[in-house]
């Protein structure tokens, strides 16, 4: 089956809708705060203060904030924010004078994220629904762009990078965690939508 972008997005939405609905269901991939602490090096103390609805659906593959946290007052864009674990950690760092724009294409993640903003009172977070390849974010507005396991899911990776570049201020930083394949996947693999989406 060809990896049509719209089909790919639909498949990804279905997977992550289920992760939001039932993060402890048991997937072939890891989720949740224990995984984040034990395997990815997140601080247990930092995550302990976040509600389960933020940390439970986490399914990242690294810790982009391990490269540095944003300063108070800065603006952060989280591409593919999901339920928002990295988003909320960044929001604590920027404080009430800063801003975190959390972008996610998945309706369920978008809604969960907005609920989590209300739950935590971290009103410096603004969720926006949109695609990584077409970020609903103004030009040159961000000090820091982060993403965690999103680039791999994007059909057009170059477009995602162009958008990250566009929204960053001059001198702004990009910090991403992702998985890369050392050698090219054969064409048959690249075209299989099940391989893309899990």
């Amino acid at each position: 089956m060809p990896a049509d972008p719209s089909q790919l997005r639909t498949a990804i939405r279905e997977v992550y809708r289920e992760v939001v609905r039932d993060p402890k269901k048991g997937y072939h991939f890891h989720t949740g705060p224990d995984y984040a602490v034990e395997r990815l090096g997140y601080s247990h103390a930092a995550l302990a203060g976040l509600p389960d609805s933020v940390t439970g659906p986490f399914a990242g593959i690294g810790n982009p904030l391990s490269l540095g946290v944003p300063a108070p007052g800065e603006t952060v864009v989280d591409i593919g924010a999901g339920s928002g674990m990295d988003t909320f950690l960044a929001a604590r760092a920027v404080g009430p004078s800063g801003r975190v724009i959390a972008v996610d294409m998945t309706e369920a993640m978008f809604e969960r994220g907005r609920e989590n903003v209300a739950l935590t009172g971290l009103t410096q977070i603004e969720y926006r629904q949109g695609f990584a390849e077409l970020l609903p974010v103004e030009d040159a507005s961000a000090d820091l762009v982060i993403s965690n396991g999103v680039l791999n899911l994007a059909p057009d990776k170059d477009a995602v990078l162009r958008e990250a570049f566009r929204v960053l201020k001059p001198g702004g930083r990009l910090q991403i965690a992702d998985i890369v394949v050392h050698k090219d996947i054969p064409p048959a693999g690249r075209e299989d939508i099940a391989i893309w989406t899990a």
């Binding site: 593959i61 690294g62 810790n63 982009p64 391990s66 490269l67 540095g68 570049f165 960053l168 201020k169 001059p170 001198g171 702004g172 930083r173 990009l174 910090q175 991403i176 965690a177 992702d178 998985i179 890369v180 394949v181 050392h182 050698k183």
Partner: peptide, 12 residues
């Protein structure tokens, strides 16, 4: 074959 990476870059 596969690596996890944490990568940083800057807008000049």
């Amino acid at each position: 074959l596969v690596y996890s990476v944490v990568l940083t870059a800057r807008n000049p």
